[in-house]
Design a protein around this nucleic acid. Structure first.
Lengths: 132, 132
DNA sequence: TATTGTTATACTCTATAACTATA
DNA sequence: TATAGTTATAGAGTATAACAATA
């Protein structure tokens, strides 16, 4: 569906721009979204993002160097490393979230509240299982 | 809107995967989509994608080296360079288009034809002007 | 032996700045 | 002077392969 692809590009353009304004790539933006309310191991994080663990190391290296995330040894598996947002990182994550909502508002506000609800319901259903 | 962002990521994941299967990045995928029925100058292409002209040079360099696109001097402005798909590039573009449709089908097919139509109409309206 | 994570390496994507050729 | 495009350079993102530590 053409409209879906165009909506996806328009949405990602907004996300990219907001990320860039905070010196964050799209992947880092996703890291912040995922870690907002979780503490995960490197491998789990890589699985969430569909990236290699070596790529994850680089992403977390750079975010850690900026003081946005923290690494800590896992309590039960001494091979594993937990990652979570620092207080600064959490603040950035919340800022980003607000900015994304504001950026997408012009799109969604073209619809009435009832239509927004209908759009959301339709999208939710298309997302019920990941596409192949 | 949360569903919109998730739908965007799901869609982009499909596009990325299809691109990767053909050794094409998302940006190159977009180039193919844009050039499918057009011949553009480097600067126009860069504007479409929101990229710097130097970035465009690199993308087109690599695609040209693979025989997928062709550069030609512009007929009226000797500073300008036109870009268009080669026959091989056109074949790839058509293949990609079919693969994208097939990949997104599982998402859209969860809706009835009437619902698909409604979703498309709602998305079209949110896209009536680009978000800020 | 298998898994977790890091490091080394290589390539793509991206932007900025400097440059050449043309307008 | 301004614009079109390329090149040089640098940094981020990505994957593959090799590795050390732990399970």
């Amino acid at each position: 569906m053409d409209a879906l692809v165009r909506a996806a590009f328009a949405t990602m353009a907004s996300l990219s721009r907001i990320g860039a304004e905070n010196d964050l790539s799209l992947s880092q933006l996703r890291v912040f979204g995922i870690l907002r309310d979780r503490r995960l191991r490197m491998t789990e994080l890589a699985d969430y993002l569909g990236l290699e663990k070596s790529t994850m190391s680089g992403l977390i290296d750079r975010a850690e160097k900026r003081g946005l995330v923290t690494r800590a040894p896992n309590a039960t598996d001494r091979r594993a490393v937990d990652v979570f947002l620092s207080p600064e990182g959490l603040a950035v994550a919340q800022l980003i979230r607000a900015r994304v909502a504001a950026a997408l508002a012009p799109m969604t506000s073209r619809l009435s509240p009832a239509e927004q609800h209908r759009l959301q319901a339709l999208l939710e259903r298309t997302l019920s299982e990941p596409p192949q």
